[in-house]
Design a protein around this nucleic acid. Structure first.
Length: 664
RNA sequence: GCUGCCGUAGCUCAGUGGUAGAGCACCUCCUUGGUAAGGAGGAGGUCAUGGGUUCAAGUCCCAUCGGCAGCUCCA
């Protein structure tokens, strides 16, 4: 007999060889269990018990259960693909669980298209209905495993390669469901009938083991959930992401264009340029308060500089080069060397530290054509970069200030509280252990003082120093990495940076690299998607559109209103077309113009303006003075919600994207 | 870069080897209007580029350029 610790403190004694399913048979709701934890490890319910153990069921709703579900769904998808093409025609690669679902890679006799997916889905439903038992088997060693996979019916080039990669003597597990056997660590659901809700999402090319020199495979992305609502939610999120795609919205709102004439180098149209300039002005405000100095460093500098900085060795393949009077120059991919040169101009005293040099530097980096993507992956971009040169003793307070600044900016832009990740020393690194100890301690203490919760990525720091990354959630629940704060001991060495300390000796400063928005291009790409094109007033390219009811009778009144708005610094226009009012409203609304100012006979007579918001809210009629007051307030506080409301004074609420959306 | 798909009017897209199309936008005219599309007319194309097959190519083939998706989250 063996002793078992069961859930909720229960204990049991059972004979050896009993399965977990049997051992847990008295636990409430056990029929819904998808797997079990055996001494902490997730295993099949069919696992038999040989020694004393702690066991508990893995129930739907837990992350473990979801992983098992998705993994089994991947196997069923593979089985369906085998039935679709004939098992002898399919070469199976791997089918792992990923963040929002799973995929499986195959080598197939022909190219898959999206049109194949419904048929495969249907076969999966069929396999689910057949409720085939999923049986684990174990091959004792490598030869046994190779024999098993050989006998499984499908081509097995990749599976054999995997097996040969395992230790020769180690047992290898397989899972069989009907005619389909797959090499797999498991665990799995007990039968295909336990499958829940799934959806095949897309087909894509992929390489065996991600290596572009290896076989090209075909991948099916799919997802699965226990809860139908959660599946629907994910599908909805994907749809929403498509609708908000910054390439589409950026085109509709005339923000930027991607040109065949300049692949990877976006063209900012007037509307986009306004947004860029507003963001830069915003960041400049923050920097002035915090005693930064702004610099502008050369875009093209001689090769030697990049050899000194180490970029030539590490980053050459991503740099552009040019020749000037027979000497080779490089276009800057980063701003740091320029900042180091700026620091070096003159003998520095400890008294002037920290030296905070900000630069909205335009950088150029070569990216492979296949990786380019709208504004989020480009070949030239502006960083809101800064290099802070400080004494080792100042490191912590500077980091703390940066954490603070980052939180402030993200809050004001409308992102939630960012998740922070501390990355510590990698194996391959420069600098003494003492330096790393110091830097990591300073970062850790700064994070503690900021009262922040954060994750640690051990070994993921840059070779020249540890870093803190900031991850924000956007409006539709996607995570993006924006800010990064990196400590650098290496740059001051390479450029022989020094300052005179209070002991009148020369000392080495420490450098902090940081960008808050990251690249302005990428940031605006994310902002477009985060706001769904509905920019807050201070960022909106056109802030108000004056709509005369009759374009000739109310022309003077409209012109006067425009003048006053312009004089108050607002970006306003008049719709001079001879369309009817309804059409003018439709067009301005589709362009997401925050405020529509209607002027007709009534308004001319009363000296007022009828105000409508882009979400359709009627704000009633106001006098010009009152209107300007509210608009200034909303703009100057960079409010994320409209301050002008209905005449009854309803509570302000964000311009709900859904309310203003009716894209034709 | 590699694989697959795609490239037709300013935009969104139809067009399956036989005379280049629609809607929106643009221009002109009519209409001067009250909170999401008033009406009529007009202009606009080397069908990405180059080559090939064919009596005939937007359509089929090849190449080039550009776009889109993907290219380990390791059984």
């Amino acid at each position: 007999m063996i002793k078992l610790q069961l859930p909720e403190g229960a204990e049991a004694e059972v004979p050896e060889g009993v399965s977990i399913r049997e051992a847990l048979s008295d636990v409430k709701g056990i029929r819904k269990a998808v797997a079990a934890r055996l001494n902490g490890t997730v295993v099949d319910l069919s696992t038999t018990l040989a020694t004393d153990a702690t066991i508990e069921p893995v129930m739907p709703g837990s992350d473990d259960a979801l992983e098992v579900l998705r993994h089994t769904t991947a196997h069923v998808m593979a089985q369906a693909v085998a039935r679709h093409f004939g098992i002898e025609n399919v070469e199976f690669a791997i089918g792992p669980v990923i963040k929002d679902g799973f995929y499986y890679d195959f080598d197939l006799p022909r190219t898959l298209t999206e049109d194949d997916l419904p048929a495969i889905e249907k076969l999966m439903e069929q396999i689910k209905r057949e409720n085939i038992e999923i049986v684990r088997s174990v091959a004792t060693d490598r030869d046994d495993a190779l024999a098993t996979i050989h006998g499984a019916g499908a081509k097995s080039k990749f599976k054999q390669e995997l097996i040969r990669g395992f230790p020769a003597e180690e047992p290898v597990s397989f899972y069989t469901q009907g005619e389909f056997t797959d090499l797999c660590r498991g665990p799995h659901l007990p039968a295909t009938g336990k499958l829940a809700f799934f959806k095949l999402l897309s087909v894509a090319g992929a390489y065996w083991r991600g290596d572009e020199k290896r076989e090209q495979l075909q991948r099916i992305y799919a997802t699965a959930f226990f809860d139908k609502k959660e599946l629907k939610q994910l599908l909805h999120q994907r749809e929403e992401a498509l609708k908000r795609d910054h390439r589409k919205v950026g085109q509709q709102l005339d923000i930027f264009r991607s040109l065949p004439e300049a692949p990877g180098f976006p063209l900012w149209l007037p509307n986009g340029t306004i947004i860029v300039n507003q963001l830069l002005a915003y960041i400049r405000e923050k920097l002035e308060v915090r005693a930064y100095q702004e610099i502008r460093t050369p875009h093209i500098m001689i090769d030697d500089l990049w050899k000194t900085s180490g970029h030539y060795d590490h980053y050459k393949d991503n740099m552009y080069f040019t020749e000037i009077e027979d000497r080779s120059f490089a276009v800057k991919p980063m701003n740091c060397p320029g900042a180091a040169l700026a620091y070096k101009q003159g003998l520095r005293s400890y008294r002037e530290h920290p030296v905070r040099l900000g630069e909205f530097g335009l950088c150029h980096r070569f990216e492979r054509s296949g990786t380019l993507h709208g504004l989020t992956r480009v070949r030239s971009f502006v960083q809101d970069d800064a290099h802070i040169f400080c004494t080792p003793a100042q490191l912590q307070s500077e980091i703390l200030a940066l954490i603070d600044l980052t939180h402030e900016v993200y809050r004001e832009i409308g992102f939630g509280v960012p998740k922070m990740v501390l990355s510590t020393r990698p194996d391959d690194r420069t600098g003494s252990d003492e330096m790393w100890d110091n830097a990591e301690n300073q970062l850790t203490e700064a994070l503690a003082k900021a009262g922040a919760t954060y994750d640690i990525n051990p070994g993921d720091g840059a070779f020249y120093g540890p870093k803190i990354d900031f991850l924000v959630l956007d409006a539709i629940g996607r995570e993006h990495q924006l800010c990064t704060i990196q400590v650098d001991f290496s740059l001051p060495e390479k450029f022989d940076l020094e300052y005179v300390g209070n002991d009148s000796a020369r000392h080495r400063p420490v450098v902090i690299h940081r960008a808050i928005l990251g690249s302005i291009e990428r940031f605006i790409g994310l902002l477009i998607e985060h706001y769904a094109g509905i920019f807050p007033l201070w960022l909106a390219p056109t802030q108000a559109m004056v709509l005369p009811v009759s374009e000739d009778r109310h022309a003077d009144a409209a012109g006067n209103i425009l003048q006053e708005l312009r004089q108050a610094g607002f970006r306003a226009h008049v719709d001079w077309s001879n369309n009817k009012l309804g059409k003018k409203i439709r067009e301005a609304t589709l362009k997401k113009t925050p405020y529509l100012l209607v002027v007709g006979d009534r308004e001319v007579d009363n000296g007022t303006i009828a105000v409508r918001r882009r979400d359709g809210t009627d704000c009633g009629s106001l006098e010009m003075g009152a209107l300007l007051h509210m608009l200034r307030e909303e703009r100057d506080t960079r409010s994320l919600v409209p301050l002008l409301n209905t005449p009854r004074g309803d509570t302000p609420q964000a311009d709900a994207p859904s309310a203003a959306e009716e894209d034709a």
